[in-house]
Design a protein around this nucleic acid. Structure first.
Lengths: 71, 71
DNA sequence: ATGTGACTTTAAGTCCGTG
DNA sequence: TCACGGACTTAAAGTCACA
């Protein structure tokens, strides 16, 4: 039940989102997610599906594998 | 709505599961999933969560990033 | 040994708000 | 601008029967 990965994943998403210069809400709109859901993803509270992970990677212009390289 | 990734992900899981010499049912037991759910994952019908993906990687003794390297 | 349909239970994901 | 909560709605997760 390790929430490690969710936490690290969220931190990674935030890192890349900040690098893109977007606010959480702007980015959420871009991905097509609710802003509250983006918050929960970045804080590690959410457990996103593969489709959701793919949407995040796509919005960040990186491949899914790159989201996990550092973890 | 691209199911591409789910399909490719399922194929990758099946590839690694077969390489380990386990049947779908044996592997499902090892991961802690229902056999029918494993079938859906491998066929791309299921949209597994990050926690589920982590459990699969763990059972296969690979890092999550490795599951996505080839996709 | 695997895929699928029909089903129930749990959690993902949305939308309203607050500090 | 973001974290967090409550009350939703939709889909993931798991069970069972059958081909």
């Amino acid at each position: 039940m390790s929430t490690h990965l969710r936490l690290k994943f969220g931190q990674r998403i935030r890192q890349l989102r900040l690098a893109s210069g977007l606010s959480q809400e702007e980015f959420a709109d871009h991905v097509g997610f609710a802003r509250t859901y983006m918050s929960r993803i970045e804080t590690g509270a959410a457990n996103p599906s593969l489709d959701a992970i793919e949407a995040l990677a796509s919005a960040l212009n990186v491949r899914v594998a790159e989201l996990f390289h550092t973890l």
